[in-house]
Design a protein around this nucleic acid. Structure first.
Lengths: 190, 190
DNA sequence: CACTCAAACTAACAAGTGTTAGTTTGATGT
DNA sequence: ACATCAAACTAACACTTGTTAGTTTGAGTG
C-alpha cells in the first residue's frame, strides 16, 4: 500500500480547476479525462461518479469552515478580534484551495446526496457569524447597525476572495488578512 | 403590431429565474419549456437559440452598469459621494432584476459571441471604480490603503446583492443603499 | 365564410452525456 | 518465467441535449 489516493487526488484537483472555469454542469467527464491525458472511462478506475468529485471538493471545505468557526466562537476574545480571526480563516482556507472555493460558492446546488447537510453547515456558520456581531454591538465594540447587513457585507467579500487571491501572489496571506480587516472593520473614510 | 416582444420577454424572464437557480448550463430548453407550459420546440418561435437568451440577460445589464458609471464619473462630486452613488446604482439595478444579476455574476463565461465585449465593459468599469478611489486618496477623503483591495471589498459586496435583496422586501432600496454605504465606507468599528 | 398569422404542436436529427463491461498494458516482486 | 495488479484502453449502452422541419390550432379581420 503506497501513499493512498494519489491518482484520485490528481483527478479531483484537475476537476477543481475545470469546475472553477466553467462550472460543474458545463464540465464533461471527457473534458476532465482530456485534461488528465486519459479516456473518460479510465476515470472510473479511481472515482465512482462525477457527483462524488463535487462532493469531495465541497464538503471538506464546508467542514473546514465549520471547524474554524467552532474554535473562534469558543475562544476568549473580543467580538472585533473574533471578526479578525474569521477574516484570517477565510484568507487561509482560500489561499490553500482557491479553485475549490469557486465550487463551494457556485456549484453547491448541484450536490445531490449532501445538499441538506451542506445547507445545514452553512446556516449554522451564518448564525454563529451574526451572533458574534450582535455580541459586539451589545458590548459597544461595534456600531449599532443591522447585524445581518454587516455580516452580509463582510461575508460577501470573504466569499469572493477566491476570485482575487490567485492574482495576488505578491501579497502574502498575513498581509492580505490585515489589509482586509482594516478595510472591512475600520472603513475607508478618513 | 401590438406591444412588441411580450412572449419573448416572458421566456427570457422565466429563463432568468431558472438560470439563477441552477446556472445556464444546467437548465435545458425542455426545463424552460416546461416552466413556460409549452414544448421545447415551441420556444423557437420566439427566440433563436439558448445562447441568445443568455446574451439578452447579461449584455443589457452590463450596459446599464456602464452607463451608470459614465454618469457618475463625469459628475461634479467628491470621491466619497461618488462611491455612494455607485452603491445606489447597484442597489437600483439589482432591485429591478435580481435574478439577472445571478447570470451576470455566474454565467458570463458561457457567452459565446459577446464574451470579449462583456469583458471589455467589465474591465472599463473596474478601472473607473479604482480611479475614483485613487482620487479620493489623493484628495485626503479616503484612508491611504491599497485601492484595489478597497474596490474588491466594496464590489464583492455589491455583486452579491442579488443573493440578498430578494429576501429583504421589507427594506426599501433607499434605506438599504444608505445602510450599505455606512457599513462599507465608515466601517463598523466604534 | 375564407384568410391570415402568431403560437402552439409532433416527430425527428445528430451530437454529446455519464457510465458500464470487458480487455490490454506494463511495471513489480517472487 | 510467472503471477499480480493498478491503471490504462476499446466499445458500447441508454438517455439527454439543442435545434430543425413541417403541421395544426384558433382567434381576429376582410
Amino acid at each position: 500500500m503506497n501513499t493512498e489516493g494519489t491518482r484520485r487526488d490528481e483527478i479531483i484537483n484537475t476537476a477543481t480547476k475545470l469546475f472553477k472555469e466553467k462550472g460543474y454542469s458545463a464540465v464533461t467527464m471527457r473534458d476532465l479525462a482530456t485534461a488528465m491525458g486519459m479516456k473518460a472511462a479510465s476515470l472510473y478506475n479511481h472515482i465512482n461518479s462525477k457527483q462524488e468529485i463535487l462532493k469531495a471538493i465541497i464538503i471538506s471545505l464546508a467542514e473546514e469552515f465549520t471547524q474554524g468557526m467552532d474554535i473562534i466562537k469558543k475562544s476568549d476574545q473580543t467580538a472585533i478580534e473574533k471578526l479578525n480571526l474569521i477574516v484570517a480563516l477565510h484568507v487561509d482556507i482560500t489561499t490553500k484551495n482557491p479553485y475549490g472555493m469557486a465550487s463551494l460558492n457556485n456549484d453547491w446546488m448541484h450536490l445531490e446526496g449532501q445538499l441538506e447537510y451542506y445547507l445545514g453547515l452553512r446556516e449554522r456558520y451564518e448564525k454563529d457569524f451574526v451572533s458574534i456581531i450582535k455580541s459586539g454591538i451589545s458590548s459597544n465594540e461595534i456600531v449599532d447597525t443591522n447585524p445581518e447587513v454587516v455580516m452580509f457585507s463582510i461575508l460577501s467579500t470573504l466569499r469572493s476572495l477566491y476570485l482575487w487571491i490567485p492574482r495576488k501572489e505578491e501579497i502574502n496571506a498575513k498581509a492580505l488578512a490585515q489589509n482586509l480587516s482594516d478595510v472591512l472593520i475600520n472603513g475607508i473614510n478618513k
